[in-house]
């Protein structure tokens, strides 16, 4: 029962994505929409991404310092651990989980509202491929902008680690920087971008799917928006696990 329902959703999702990635009626209209979405996603999320990653970096540094206390592991490892934790896991995953809540729910309710107010039907009758026009620009904008946001998050988070540990005397600034420069593997940065790309695709496409298939009234719209976040979050974590298994 549950399995057939899941498969049904998966099928519908794949068909919708197939329709979404077909040739645009007019490139300039899609281009404008991509730019608008980039602005909304990027500029609109900067502050929250900044705040969250600052604290995550800070907490990572303090907690790792606490664990190091009384061991023989040198202090500069704090910088090294903050850097790798951030790049490999925290920046892409936490940022995208947060963006699923912010951007994903917003997309689901925007598209869902258009469905309920017959805007989508009106566009269909004009001859617009609504799956493409409403979904493709959002996904494209997200897979470009979200990796950039994640990169910013990584820098800010490392900065947060610095602020939390150096002025408080856990270690010196030179030690922290030395940690940052130790055992650096560019491959990890590659992994960070792979993760953020996949997560960005998942959270936008799932949210758009939820919105596009809304029926009923305002309660269903609210549910779709919640589902968009919950399902995106689960899929992001699942993908996180799979990428970790495959890429490490």
């Amino acid at each position: 029962m549950v399995i057939t329902k899941l498969l049904n959703h998966l099928g519908k999702y794949l068909i919708l994505m197939g329709n979404a990635f077909s040739k645009p009626e007019k490139t300039s209209m899609y281009y404008k929409e991509v730019i608008r979405q980039m602005h909304d996603i990027g500029v609109g999320s900067l502050i929250i991404v900044f705040i969250i990653s600052l604290f995550i970096g800070a907490v990572t540094a303090i907690q790792f310092a606490y664990q190091l206390d009384g061991t023989l592991v040198p202090d500069y490892y704090i910088g090294y651990v903050v850097r790798d934790m951030t790049i490999i896991e925290l920046a892409p995953t936490i940022t995208c989980l947060v963006l699923a809540g912010k951007v994903g729910s917003n997309m689901a309710s925007e598209i869902g509202g258009m469905r309920q107010k017959e805007h989508i039907d009106a566009m269909e009758i004009m001859g617009v491929n609504t799956a493409a026009y409403l979904i493709m620009p959002k996904v494209l904008a997200a897979v470009v902008i979200i990796p950039i946001l994640v990169a910013i998050a990584a820098f800010v988070s490392i900065g947060g680690g610095f602020i939390a540990s150096v002025p408080t005397g856990l270690l010196s600034g030179q030690e922290f920087v030395m940690g940052l420069r130790s055992f650096f593997m560019p491959y990890n940065v590659f992994m960070m971008f792979v993760k953020s790309l996949v997560f960005a695709f998942l959270l936008t496409s799932i949210s758009c799917y939820q919105g596009y298939n809304v029926k009923g009234g305002s309660i269903e719209l609210g549910k779709a928006s919640t589902n968009a976040v919950v399902i995106s979050d689960i899929m992001i974590l699942l993908a996180d696990y799979l990428i970790a298994v495959v890429l490490i």
Partner: peptide, 10 residues
């Protein structure tokens, strides 16, 4: 269908 729909107003 899309081509036809450009000839349809609703």
């Amino acid at each position: 269908l899309r081509t036809l729909r450009m000839k349809v107003g609703m």
